[in-house]
Amino acid sequence: MRLLRGGVILAKTADQRPELRDELHVYDARRHGLPDLRQYVRDLIGRWPFAAEFSRSSIRSANTDTVFGQLWLVLNPTLLAVVYFILVVILTGKKISEGGPLLVQICSGLFLFTLLQGAASAGAGSVTGGGALISRMAFPRLLMPLAAVRTAFYRFLPTLPVFFLLKLVFSDTPWGWEMLLGVYFLVLMVIFSAGLAAFLGALQVYFRDASSFLPYFLRIWMYLSPVLWLPDPFMPGGSKSELYLLMLFNPMFSICGGWGEAILSSKVSSLTFFIVGLAWSIVMLLVGSLFFVARERDFSVRI
């Protein structure tokens, strides 16, 4: 039951009377700067049930736990995939009748990217939309964006079987153990999303219109990432390999690329994807969460 704002000292008083058993909370004027991180993480883990319940209740209040709610969760990205499919078909002049594999390919990337989009946009509003929770309760604020990521993840899950079904029906791409490597890239995506959600959540406190730029930003990011297209031409030996190094600056090039190669083509992607993707995820997580934690004491006087 330790609070973090200002740091906490566990005072083991010499006096053993039961009423003095408790800890001493000190709240001082340090407004910015990092708290004791080990303590923070311990507290974060200790209160994770809150984030889980918060996320669960937001899923519940959005009715996504009903049959039609679940159906919509699946239908929405699938319809979006169809829209992009038509777009790509028109732009590249392919025949719709031969487009089955293309649709499956688009779904594989789009469903994963929807996870990032969901986490980013919900995470951005998680602090400013936290209302009474933020202004009245003391708990590690990082739980708010993390709850948003959890929600996005649980919205992503039901789209997986849809993808596998589409792959089974429309695509002749192989199935193999290599598909399990997708789990690695999914984990990277979740870590990256957590960092991004925390960063945007803190940013939104200072700039409330940040979230209105966000959809455009995310849309452009998607076009620049191997979501609708495959990374192959940009890889060494490909037709546009001169852009390879540049592409690696986009975290999603490695993460979405590795995901697609694993889950769609069932192949082991280049080691670069594994390493660069991991590096980006960790950097984003550290930057986002440290920025957030250093600022979070300031949130309640600004909301």
Binding site: L3, R5, G6, A11, L20, D22, E23, L24, H25, V26, Y27, D28, A29, R30, R31, S135, R136, M137, A138, R297, D298, S300, V301
Partner: peptide, 18 residues
């Protein structure tokens, strides 16, 4: 709200035992 630890002091200090 400050004693509850929700608001950070701008200056000064609060100690709470319990």
């Amino acid at each position: 709200r400050a004693v509850a630890g929700v608001l950070a002091p701008s200056s000064g200090r609060i100690e709470v035992r319990g």
